[in-house]
């Protein structure tokens, strides 16, 4: 186990290092941040001065060296625009994103598990067909469109839910969360549904396929012959065996939800870190973009690691080595 952990740690560092190189290279081709932060009336001398102040006049590999050096000290740089540490800016907005993702994940699981299992067990029932049709829509509709549609139906036409923003928050362990207040909870519903839709639809399809596959196997027939109840058959025998690939995909999905809640956050004016990324790209605020991508990469690696651990819990036959 220890050996495995060490191996994963080394892997993680290699991945993060590679990401940092790629991100840094790509960043240097995406527009000049200096022109974004000097006033439009700046003279050539002022522009040169700003460039030197940001260290952007040095060769790229020197800039990267400085970046790595700071990174090792836990310093991800200071935002050109906000003049505050990039890490602080991201961490400040992280609770809002995590909260949104948490509810989306909860919602996708709550809907996808029963629907997927049912559709897998009774593939020909009308309900299953409806679920499958619906899931196809869920996968193919773009989230910005769904979001706007939900806003116009539930907020503008029906007046049931607020259109945007995070609403009132209440602190938990000193961190403000919206779901703790009724007003805040009402604000979460629409963005969480929008964000969940794609994942939910995909999970349904995956669970259904897995269940159908497992149901054809011999041990299910034995169980049935043995007289195991339907409920137990599905939820403990079939589902457990169908779950390993589902967990993999689900883990990846959580990662992407955190990383790419961007669109949903922008539509619903949700003050999360995804919106920060969009704004930073628009202003070529390199330190924030780099810090964001590094953090997201770290999250992906971490989630993958957790997924691997979860495997062993679901299926003791899997050996971590």
């Amino acid at each position: 186990m220890l050996k495995y952990l060490l191996k994963r740690l080394v892997q993680m560092i290699v991945v993060l290092f590679t990401v940092s190189v790629i991100v840094f290279l790509v960043m240097s081709f995406t527009g000049d941040p200096v022109l974004m932060i000097v006033p439009p009336t700046a003279t050539d001398a002022q522009i040169a001065e700003a460039r030197t102040a940001l260290g952007l006049d040095r060769p790229l590999w020197v800039q990267y060296g400085v970046f790595l050096q700071n990174l090792i000290r836990g310093d991800l740089g200071v935002s050109y625009i906000f003049k505050r540490p990039a890490l602080t800016l991201i961490v400040e907005r992280m609770p809002a994103t995590l909260e949104l993702v948490f509810f989306s994940v909860l919602l996708s699981l709550a809907v996808a598990l029963p629907c997927g299992v049912y559709a897998g067990a009774r593939p020909n029932s009308p309900f299953s067909r409806a679920v499958m049709g619906g899931s196809l829509l869920g996968i193919s509709l773009p989230s910005f469109w769904v979001g706007i549609l939900l806003i116009f139906y539930f907020a503008v036409e029906k007046g049931l839910l607020p259109s945007s923003g995070r609403g009132a928050t209440a602190p938990l362990f000193g961190i403000p969360f919206a779901f703790l207040t009724w007003d805040g909870f009402r604000h979460i519903v629409l963005p969480a549904v929008t964000l969940a839709l794609g994942t939910l639809a995909m999970l349904i399809r995956l669970i259904r396929a897995q269940i159908m596959e497992v149901m054809r196997q011999d041990f299910i027939r034995f169980a049935r012959a043995k007289g195991v109840s339907w409920r137990s058959l599905f939820f403990s025998h079939a589902l457990k065996n169908a779950l390993v690939p589902v967990v993999t995909v689900f883990g990846m999905q959580i990662g992407s939800l955190i990383a790419f809640a961007t669109v949903t956050e922008t539509i619903f004016a949700w003050p999360g870190m995804g919106k920060l990324l969009v704004d930073s790209i628009n202003t070529a605020d390199r330190p924030v973009i780099v810090a964001y991508l590094m953090i997201v990469a770290a999250m992906f690696v971490l989630i993958n690691f957790i997924v691997d651990i979860v495997y062993t819990l679901i299926d003791p036959r899997i050996d971590l080595r």
Binding site: G159, S164, A269
Partner: peptide, 14 residues
């Protein structure tokens, strides 16, 4: 701050 223009309109409509 509501950066998405359609959402901004919606917020006024509601």
């Amino acid at each position: 701050p509501i950066s998405n223009a359609a959402t901004r309109t919606a917020a006024l409509l509601t």
